[in-house]
Design a protein around this nucleic acid. Structure first.
Lengths: 96, 96
DNA sequence: CTGTGACTAAAAGTCCGTA
DNA sequence: TTACGGACTTTTAGTCACA
């Protein structure tokens, strides 16, 4: 990319962890509501396969997209992200 | 895009509101820490002008970028976003 | 119902300036 | 110090066929 100060050289970059955690939190909320990816896609106006990618952590959505998904789940984005941050603080424990 | 049910036809789309609110929250936190955009840019490894764009609500960062900024501000992203959501709930009141 | 690779269009993100 | 623009590269948005 470009030469910046690399403070930490961890094997699993924080970025990957965050995407994975967000995906997990999303899947948790979705399944808790008994929604299929397809149904959530419909509610948020996003493609079914795109939702799938986010849940698997292979996609890095923008704030606006993340917010649309949160709205479709009827929760504030801050709450969804807070859920994603939980397992990261504890070092990878299971979510609710 | 494609034809979906338009529930609400507000003059200012939610997306714009959200970006603006996030930018405001960001600026609040940054100035509270007495950081210049340039300094925050350096700490987060992002371009000075990009930080500026986000604060003005003209840019829509990804979750990973937003998280890097939150880290540079030493707060969880969920907290920064929660700050952004506050004025939206109250209909555009001033932040702390 | 979900995972995945491939693809094009669009936007993110960088870097150079000026005011 | 910040706003803002232009030109540029990289990544995401959005979609499809197929497993």
């Amino acid at each position: 990319m470009h030469e910046h100060l690399r403070v930490n050289e961890t094997a699993t970059p924080n970025s990957t962890l965050f995407s994975a955690a967000f995906g997990k939190a999303l899947k948790n909320k979705r399944t808790a509501l008994n929604l299929s990816q397809e149904e959530l896609g419909f509610r948020s106006g996003l493609d079914r396969t795109y939702i799938s990618g986010i849940e698997r952590g292979t996609r890095n959505p923008t704030l606006l997209i993340a917010n649309r998904i949160a709205e479709a789940l009827a929760i504030p984005l801050s709450v969804l992200i807070a859920e994603a941050e939980k397992p990261m603080q504890e070092g990878g424990a299971s979510a609710v």
